[in-house]
Design a protein around this nucleic acid. Structure first.
Length: 241
RNA sequence: GCCUAGAUACUU
């Protein structure tokens, strides 16, 4: 099963969703019984294919069997599936159901919901949930923060984004490359290239290594400003590495 | 048990 799951994982990451399903059936035919990892990946594959209803059916099937029931990953995957479809109501319903089954949502579950609210531009609700999850004993992590920070950036509310970034640091969470990339993108799309340049320096002072996304974000910003000089300079710097 | 779930750019 381990090796089968490894292969399933590769197929899943490369978006070969159809093959995932075929391989899964092949497994059963060969008498290999899927474990929780297998089922969770199948649920994920169905969600990626846009077939969240079918994914939920697999989840229900797992619930039927009292033993080897679904875990927090199974539920969270379906929650995320509905979130991506924009069916936030359904997502919250699944969360209620998992709570009833004594499976507590974790930080990933909450992040998925927060992400869905952000996509609907409901940043206020998103931030509310970010705060409320702690009352359920779940601490927000970098991903949860970055999700809301990004939403504020995309709405052009850079002050709010910065406020959350500070708050995150206060909680002892060290901003990673993604958080910097998110803030950089917010600055770049507003044409604040001076500040973007400073932040780009700052992240490196903090020993973070700019990745491809960092470079494309900042290069794009300089291009739109017509500063081809800086754009090419960074491009060369990127290629050097 | 790094066999499974959540965040960022460009392009489309």
């Amino acid at each position: 099963v381990h090796s089968c799951n490894t292969l399933l994982g590769v197929l899943l990451k490369s978006n070969h969703v159809q093959l995932c399903w075929k391989f899964y059936q092949q497994m059963s035919r060969n008498g290999i019984s899927p474990n929780i990892y297998t089922k969770n990946m199948i649920i994920h594959a169905l969600c990626k294919a846009g077939n969240v209803e079918e994914a939920e059916r697999v989840l229900l099937e797992m619930e039927e069997k009292g033993w080897e029931g679904p875990d927090v990953v199974s539920y969270t995957t379906v929650v995320d599936g509905y979130c991506r479809k924009g069916e936030v109501e359904k997502a919250f319903e699944i969360v209620e159901k998992m709570k009833k089954k004594q499976i507590e949502p974790n930080v990933v579950t909450y992040s998925a919901l927060i992400g869905a609210l952000c996509k609907q531009r409901n940043v206020l609700e998103a931030e509310k949930l970010l705060k409320e999850m702690r009352k359920s004993g779940v601490d927000a992590d970098k991903v949860a923060y970055a999700t809301v920070i990004d939403a504020f950036c995309k709405l052009g509310k850079l002050a709010e984004a910065g406020r959350l970034a500070d708050e995150m640091v206060q909680k002892g969470l060290i901003p990673n490359v993604v958080v910097y990339n998110t803030l950089l993108h917010g600055l770049c799309r507003k044409g604040k290239m001076k500040k973007a340049g400073e932040l780009f320096q700052e992240m490196q002072r903090r020993k973070l290594v700019p990745d491809m996304i960092t470079y494309t974000t900042v290069i794009d910003g300089y291009c739109k400003e017509g500063n081809m000089h800086e754009a090419f300079r960074l491009h060369n710097e990127m290629v050097e590495k």
